[in-house]
């Protein structure tokens, strides 16, 4: 190919079709793994790896949107109780019996406007964390409150280290080179992009009394 010809090829289109194909392949891989015997530890590991590849890819695409300053939410009405129940079922499948996963619902409104896929991604990151640090029990919560819809992931692990807890996330949660902290960064970006009139969403990180577990909270206006 002569150098001039490369100008006629739209690199963006190539990139997009490549990403498209990766997603298709990943889906086929995931479905194939899901069809296998779920009791095998090897399969469970492969599944979890698959998820992590996907999470990273979605993050990469989001970063691209952020870089171009065009992160756009797809707001639609969803039933929060259903959303959390579905998430818990999915989480239970991921936990493969190693953890007890519970669902806690309080005064949940009939519908709420949020970006289902992005909020799910933020919660999923928190869940991955919890699966890593929890001892036995993870509680996924949903509640209606004066300041919006509250979604939470609560575990019985050692809690967040002070470095995470005390630095405000927007100033840059300590993201290490291997990507720890990235999940929290995305969660804060996603939740803060949710705006309703003059209110903005917020990510709140807490430890329970006596460092008896971490609480990850998304506040959606």
């Amino acid at each position: 190919m002569k150098p001039d010809d490369s100008a006629t090829i739209d690199l963006k289109v190539l990139l997009a079709s490549n990403i498209h194909e990766i997603k298709n392949l990943l889906l086929q891989l995931m479905l194939r793994l899901d069809a296998m015997d779920s009791d095998s530890a090897g399969v469970a590991d492969a599944r979890s790896l698959c998820r992590r590849i996907n999470d990273r890819m979605v993050q990469m695409l989001l970063l691209d949107e952020l870089q171009a300053d065009k992160l756009k939410l797809n707001l639609a009405a969803h039933n929060p109780a259903d959303f959390v129940e579905d998430f818990v079922r999915d989480a239970t499948a991921l936990a493969t019996g190693r953890f007890i996963i519970e669902c806690c619902k309080k005064q949940v409104p009939d519908y709420w406007f949020f970006d289902r896929e992005l909020v799910e991604m933020a919660l999923l990151n928190a869940l991955h964390n919890a699966l890593r640090y929890a001892r036995r029990r993870i509680v996924i919560g949903v509640a209606g409150a004066a300041n919006g819809l509250i979604l939470s992931v609560d575990d019985d692990g050692p809690g967040y280290p002070p470095s995470v807890l005390h630095k405000t996330v927007e100033k840059g949660a300590p993201i290490t080179k291997n990507g720890t902290g990235m999940g929290l960064f995305f969660a804060s970006v996603i939740v803060e992009a949710h705006k309703n009139k003059d209110r903005q969403g917020a990510l709140i990180l807490q430890n329970k009394e006596g460092d008896s577990g971490a609480v990850f909270i998304l506040q959606l206006p």
Partner: peptide, 25 residues
């Protein structure tokens, strides 16, 4: 991911949609 934009403005929306990749669950 942009498909949600299509759905939110469609005269006939699907009953639901799944973003690739997704799990069997």
């Amino acid at each position: 991911r942009d498909y949600e934009k299509v759905v939110s403005c469609a005269e006939f929306a699907p009953d639901d949609y799944l973003l690739k990749p997704f799990t069997a669950e």
